[in-house]
Amino acid sequence: METKNYITSYCSIKSGKVNVNGKETYSDINLSSVDFIKSVYKQFQLNYPKFYKMDHLCKLAFVASDLLLKSNPIMQKYAPEDVSVIIANSASSLEIDTEHQNTISDKNNYFPSPAVFVYTLPNILIGEIAIRNCIKGENTFFIFDKFDADFMGSYINSLLNGSKAKCSLTGWVDFYENNYEAFLCTVEKEEGILNIEHNSEQLNKLYNN
């Protein structure tokens, strides 16, 4: 018999709107991508000095994960090694890759920056989330052309059912050429703040919401 798991909280940030657990908590549709993400950070007083050092992709992942875990403080419930972070996107780190490429393309203005280069890997955003929340469990970054609820849904269920994790922070964080989209949720074995069954149908519904 299949064991059921639950989406116990979720947060989406797209098109100038922040939605936490089904409620729109902030919006400003006039700001450009980066300015909007910074305004979310200020609005919710997320106070984390390293925020400004992050690239745009990590900034987006940071605000989404912070708002999510503020609504559902899973780390009070689970040991660091029992929580997994499994996230995917389409553009990998191409936004900051382009910036690094620009620092090396001109021989007369050649100044590659370590603070830029370090972000040219998409999984750095998992690292930033892990550091902020002290999460030490399974971590994997996947790339898909678009959000793949079928794979993500079944893989997270197999991690939880196979005792590889007790809780998973999972979803989609993409940022490229001014387009941005974050959808993160927590999946647990027991019902929580929300008790939406964790499957591809529900993931798609919440993602497209």
């Binding site: 972070v85 370090v118 550091i131 929340n133 999460i135 030490k136 971590n139």
Partner: peptide
């Protein structure tokens, strides 16, 4: 097989 995170520093 298993993976983990240090939750310490990005580089």
């Amino acid at each position: 097989g298993a993976s983990s995170n240090d939750a310490n520093h990005i580089s």
